[in-house]
């Protein structure tokens, strides 16, 4: 399955990137492809582009703050969790998200 995800936390220096790592590891373990965009204190990095979205089956938001340019994802199935959930147990986040489809 092709997944795209956005991570963001208030300070934007640690949780954002830990959640990205967690999601990438968990996706690999479960055999999914994932691209994770971070919205930290440096702004948007590894941005999810239109061509990524065309392929994406599912969107995960692991965020404690507002998602920038959220309208990109309007017609997709979105699974939203606090950023801490993806840090602690990203596998469960992905499993819950795929169960939504």
């Amino acid at each position: 399955m092709n997944i795209v995800a956005v991570t963001a936390c208030p300070a934007g220096v640690a949780h954002t990137y830990m959640a990205k790592k967690g999601l990438e590891k968990a996706a690999k373990k479960l055999g999914h492809k994932i691209k994770v965009e971070t919205q930290g204190s440096m702004g948007i990095e590894n941005e999810i582009k239109v061509k990524d979205l065309e392929k994406a089956d599912l969107v995960i938001f692991a965020v404690d703050t507002k998602v920038e340019k959220a309208n990109r994802f309007d017609d997709k199935t979105i699974h939203e969790v606090p950023v801490a959930a993806a840090v602690k147990n990203a596998t469960k986040v992905i499993e819950d998200a795929t169960a939504k489809l």
Partner: peptide
């Protein structure tokens, strides 16, 4: 509400 507050805080920190 918490999310809105946290967004405000994140822009204020720097």
């Amino acid at each position: 509400a918490k999310k809105h507050l946290m967004t405000g805080v994140s822009y204020m920190i720097p």
